[in-house]
């Protein structure tokens, strides 16, 4: 019975502490809501064996936006890597078309 009382007291005290203080937990949640940073990793393995790291790290107010930006950036880097090798990217990559002058 005594043990049960101590347990409930502990629960009550901790709940109060959490509710009344400026908890770091709440702060960290607010931080991540205000800005979300996402990294989209990628490696392009050239047909001659060399590699290019095409990763992108992007921040945005929403995580969905940051994720989309990072993924799009990574895919664009793949397009550039493929083209710089003289290859035409596969249609599945959805690479933006480049004019003769922009072509690396």
């Amino acid at each position: 019975m005594k043990k049960l009382f101590i347990f409930f007291m502990a629960v009550a005290v901790s709940t109060f502490a959490f509710a009344s203080s400026e908890t770091p937990l709440a702060k960290s949640i607010l931080k991540s809501v205000s800005k979300c940073t996402v990294t989209a990793y990628g490696t392009y393995h050239y047909p001659n064996g060399n590699n290019v790291d095409v990763s992108c790290t992007k921040s945005a107010s929403s995580c969905a936006q940051a994720q989309a930006d990072a993924a799009n950036c990574r895919d664009l880097n793949v397009c550039n890597a493929v083209r710089s090798f003289g290859l035409e990217p596969s249609p599945t990559l959805n690479c933006p078309k480049v004019s003769e002058f922009e072509n690396p």
């Binding site: 060399n50 590699n51 290019v52 790291d53 990763s55 992108c56 799009n72 950036c73």
Partner: peptide
């Protein structure tokens, strides 16, 4: 620029 601006980490690794 999305593909070449900040956060775009293109890095070449050669054998």
């Amino acid at each position: 620029c999305l593909g070449c601006g900040e956060g775009s980490n293109v890095r070449y690794v050669f054998y």
